[in-house]
Design a protein around this nucleic acid. Structure first.
Length: 644
RNA sequence: GCCGAUGUGACUCAGUUGGUAGAGUAGCUGAUUUGUAAUCAGCCUGUCGGGGGUUCGAGUCCCUUCAUCGGCUCCA
């Protein structure tokens, strides 16, 4: 007999060789029906793998991330099995579970495939599910594995096997399909009741653009048909929050082919919103001792040769601008740092002046690959809420904390709660590719980690993700359909101060090299606004929204009074417009509701006599009538609540 | 840049096996003067993304190019 410890701490005795499924059955039939895989001593395994010794066991269902993972991983095998039967001779890459569903990378060789083939593939998958095709694990030696896959010409699989250690290799068989796989899997396909192929995409083998491009099929599956329907409905809902759609509908921004792809144009309302965000940040920055500057949109080529950017990115960027003067060349600025370095160099700097914080809403131009452009989140011209902090090495941590505070204030004011933070550090096994001394790196990395600890910020640490010039801390937020975008960033830079020969005079009278910190709490105004639109669905916070209210006169007879009401409210510090059309009030309300204007102020005979307006809240309905002063107070009160 | 898809009036979309473009919304004009989510009538709107080809005839088929969408790669 062996002792099995369950998550609640209870210990049960079973025969040696008991399987997780047996354990589930002994607990309840319902659990046995829903269990997908099990965590045995913290390792996820399949339900039919015998347990030989005392162990802690956690039974995993759809509600556990690991259970879901098993489900989707098996679904990927289901997809592969179906494809193997439909398209003999295709070669398989990899097929993992992902955040939402799974994919399989396949070299279709001669076969042509398009999304028109999806129904056929889905049907084949359903057949395999109905047949309760079992999935069997088999451990093989490296030689056997190579022989089996090599014999079939599975070049991708053999490459994977190459890299594996003998004795750790396992196969999973389902129907006619055998896959190299660590597992674990469901014991058969039958729990996969609903499956949907989502999209087709090209994906380079091992993510390397110099290697063959495989066809990736994205799909998702669920234990219940209803869950699939709900998921698809959720995706539809998310599409309604797409910033590209809302941006057009609300008149926030536009694109135009003649202006050029990836070059956004901010329309009046979008500009209003953006400037309000910029003002908000500017005020905070002033409090934190930043000096605001303005620099040109172009810079001499030599500036970027000195900074190193020309060597690094020159070939893949906008071409230099030439002039009638022989040899004169300028670049559209891809970043603001070199200009700011020149500001630093303009006068000798004493240690007493540090940290020096130079801020600019700086518009930069980057020649992003055309396939990568995406609404406002990835563009070729964008404005960074940039600043560069020049400080002594011992000030890095304190400055980091101050920047984190600014980001905290902003995210709080906009209710960005579900962000992720990532600390990117050096690859400890390969320190040669980085510039700067070991001592400084160690100091800066430690400063970042400690700053996060002190601020109580939970950040994921990634080794090898640092830029060659320094470690960084990034803030990521998801968009409507779950894509992650990097917004705020704080980066330490040892490179530019070196290249530009920046120095300050220390208390010892000697010259020293300052550390430079790049930081952008929003990241860029474009991307930030895009994510903000998707988070709010266009219902912006009152302090930010371009139009806080719209006056709706009941008939054209009251237009004059509407005008004076608007003036009165503007005097009280609010902003809004009047619906002057000769439409019925119901129509005006409908249009204002759809335009997501927070407050509708209805003005008719009753209100004019009483000197009030009837207030209607977008999405919430009639709030009754009040004086303009009382209305202004309501709005101010709400704003103060958020901003405190 | 690569893989796949899409492109019809300002917007959303229809347009059978190729037969010479249509609806709703928006806009304009007029009537209506309206009380909490769509007043009525009339009018206008298109090189069917661009270019080339096949055909008696192309929005429909082919080639090419541009843009957009979903991914990959990249992202100072």
């Amino acid at each position: 007999m062996i002792n099995i410890t369950l998550p609640d701490g209870s210990v049960h005795q079973y025969e040696a060789g008991v399987t997780p499924l047996d354990i589930a059955k002994s607990i309840s039939e319902g659990l046995a029906r829903n269990v997908l895989s099990a965590k045995v001593n913290d390792k996820v395994t399949e339900l039919n793998r015998p347990i030989g010794d005392d162990a802690t066991v956690q039974l995993l269902t759809w509600n556990d991330e690991d259970g879901k993972h098993t489900f989707w991983h098996t679904s990927a095998h289901l997809l592969a099995t179906a494809l193997q039967e439909l398209y003999p001779g295709i070669k398989f890459g990899i097929g993992p579970a992902i955040e939402n569903g799974f994919y399989y990378d396949i070299d279709f060789g001669e076969h042509q495939i398009s999304s028109d083939d999806f129904p056929k593939i889905e049907k084949k998958m359903q057949e395999l599910v109905s047949a309760k095709t079992p999935i069997c694990r088999r451990e093989v030696s490296k030689a056997e594995a190579m022989a089996e896959f090599g014999g079939r010409g599975e070049v991708y699989k053999t490459e994977l096997i190459e890299a594996l250690e003998d004795g750790t290799i396992s196969f999973y068989e389902s129907g006619s399909f055998t896959d190299l796989c660590r597992g674990p899997h469901l014991v058969d396909f039958s729990p996969i009741k609903a499956v949907k192929l989502i999209s087709l995409a090209g994906a380079y083998w091992r993510g390397d653009e110099h290697r063959p491009q495989l066809t990736r099929i994205y799909a998702i599956s669920f234990p219940k048909k209803k869950e699939l329907d709900e998921y698809l409905a959720m995706l539809e809902e998310a599409k309604k929050r797409d910033h590209r759609k809302i941006g057009r509908e609300m008149g926030l921004f536009m694109f135009n082919d003649m202006v050029g792809k990836g070059l956004p144009i901010w329309l009046p309302k979008g500009t209003d919103l953006r400037l309000r965000l910029q003002d908000f940040l500017s005020k905070i920055q002033k409090r934190y001792g930043y000096k605001q500057v303005i620099t040109p949109h172009i810079g001499g080529k030599q500036l970027y040769v000195t900074s190193g950017h020309w060597d690094h990115y020159g070939a893949d960027s906008f071409r230099p601008i030439t002039t009638p003067e022989e040899g004169e060349e300028y670049l559209l600025k891809p970043m603001n740092c070199p200009h700011h370095c020149m500001i630093y160099k303009n006068e000798p700097v004493s240690y007493k002046e540090l940290p020096l914080r130079i801020a600019e809403f700086g518009t930069v131009y980057r020649y992003e690959q055309s396939g990568e452009l995406h609404g406002l989140t990835r563009v070729r011209s964008f404005t960074q809420d940039d600043a560069h902090i020049f400080c002594r090495p011992d000030q890095v941590k304190e400055e980091f904390i101050k920047v984190m505070e600014i980001i905290e204030i902003i995210f709080k004011a906009l209710s960005f709660e579900n962000f992720e933070a990532q600390i990117s550090l050096r690859d400890p096994n390969n320190t040669t590719k980085y510039v700067g001394t070991d001592e400084n790196w160690a100091k800066a990395e430690q400063a970042i980690v400690e700053a996060c600890q002190e601020k109580g910020l939970k950040a994921r640490v990634e080794y090898g993700e640092a830029a060659f010039y320094g470690p960084k801390l990034d803030f990521m937020v998801k968009d409507a359909i779950g894509r992650r975008w990097q917004l705020g960033t704080i980066q330490v830079d040892y490179n530019l101060p070196e290249r530009f020969g920046l120095e300050y005079i220390g208390s010892d009278g000697q010259k020293h090299r300052p550390v430079m910190i790049h930081r952008a709490p929003f990241g860029s105004m474009e991307r930030f606004c895009a994510v903000l639109i998707e988070h709010t669905g266009g219902k912006f916070p009152l302090w930010l929204t371009p139009e806080q209210f719209i006056v709706l006169p009941v008939s054209e007879k009251y237009l004059d009074q509407a005008q004076s009401m608007l003036r009165r409210l503007e005097e009280l510090g609010l902003r809004g417009t009047i619906d002057q059309r000769s439409e019925k009030i119901g129509r005006k309300i409908r249009d204002a509701e759809l335009a997501k204007i927070p407050f509708m102020l209805i003005l008719g005979e009753k209100e004019i006599e009483a000197g009030t307006v009837s207030v209607r809240r977008q999405g919430a309905g009639d709030l009754g009538s009040m004086t303009p002063e009382a209305f202004a107070q309501t709005i101010e009160g709400e704003i103060a609540e958020v901003m405190k």
